[in-house]
Structures are given as C-alpha cells and as structure tokens.
C-alpha cells in the first residue's frame, strides 16, 4: 500500500506537468483587452494538481496518510484476480465492439461472465443473453434513433432497418 501511494502521487505529478506543458499551447498570461488567455485556466489547475502531489508525497514521507502507514498489500491475489477479470473483460468487450459490433458482443460477454465466472446454468444465461441485445436494439435503434456501433456485422442489419424504420 505504501509503495502504491508514492507511485500514484508520482504518476499524477508527471501527468500534471504534462497538462501544464500542454496548456501553454494557448497563451497562459493576461491578454490586453481580452482577459486571461485560453490556457490560463487549465495551466493553473494543473499547477494546483502538482502542488497537491507534492503535498501527498510529503505526507507519505512523514507517514501521515493511512495508506502510507498501511502494511497491507495494495492488491492481494484475490483482488488482483478479480480486477484482472473485470477490467480485462471490459477491455476485450470494448475492443471487440469495433470489430463485430455491440449486438454480437453483448451475448458473448454475458455468456463469458455468467457461465465462465459465475457458473450459472444455461437456463439463466441463455434468456438474458438473448433478451439483452434485442432490448438494446429496440431501445436505442428504434425508440431513440441512436445507431450503436456494429463493426463488420453492419450489413446484416440492413433488412432489419428496412422492416422497422
């Protein structure tokens, strides 16, 4: 936990410096007749972030914040496994949306999570895996007229559009 506290503060400090540098693409000073330049607001906010990171590191060095005193691991094995499954599966899901689209990914994801991790019976998994993409289609494409990304499966939906819209 102690090391994680320091690493997070340093990463965020580097991020603040990057934002400060990025803000200077627009003027950060006072422009006569116009007021503060466009970059001033984010520049000073990022400067504030940097100061906070310094403050967090200072408290870390003095062991004042709870995480900097904690002897517990930042992530134990179970936490790491749960996090890897959750974040990793989301990463894969969002990546796959670009290729095969939302309507293929939703059932795949539900089957993966409910069968693979939850060990639920097909009798629970299958109805949900079938109902959810249909509901999403009716809600977004038909009711809201928002087209969700479909990747290479786009042509398969042309007949549906012609039928329903």
């Amino acid at each position: 936990m102690r090391r994680a506290e320091l690493v997070m503060a340093l990463v965020m400090a580097a991020f603040s410096l990057y934002i400060m540098w990025k803000s200077t693409e627009l003027p950060v000073g006072w422009i006569e007749g116009e007021g503060p330049g466009g970059g001033a607001f984010p520049f000073w906010l990022a400067a504030g972030m940097l100061v906070c990171c310094g403050w967090i590191v200072l408290r870390w060095a003095r062991r004042q914040s709870p995480p900097s005193r904690s002897e517990e691991p930042y992530m134990d094995r179970t936490a790491l496994r749960v996090f890897a499954i959750g974040a990793g599966s989301l990463l894969a899901m969002i990546g796959l949306i670009h290729i095969v689209g939302v309507y293929v990914v939703i059932p795949l994801y539900l089957i993966f999570y409910m069968r693979g991790i939850g060990h639920h019976a097909w009798s629970v998994t299958a109805p949900l895996a079938l109902a959810m993409p249909v509901a999403a289609f009716l809600f977004f494409e038909i009711a809201l007229k928002i087209t969700l990304p479909k990747g290479y499966t786009e042509p398969a939906f042309y007949p549906l559009y012609e039928m329903l819209l």
Binding site: L90, M93, V102, L110, F112, M114, G118, L128, M132, F140
Partner: peptide, 16 residues
Amino acid sequence: MPFTVLAPVIFILCVV
C-alpha cells in the same frame, strides 16, 4: 441475486 449476473449487466449498460 449473485453479482456474477449483476456485474456483466451493469458493465454492458455502462458501455452502451
């Protein structure tokens, strides 16, 4: 209700 049903449903709702 087990979280292994709830979590994927919520994740999908988040993404769309």
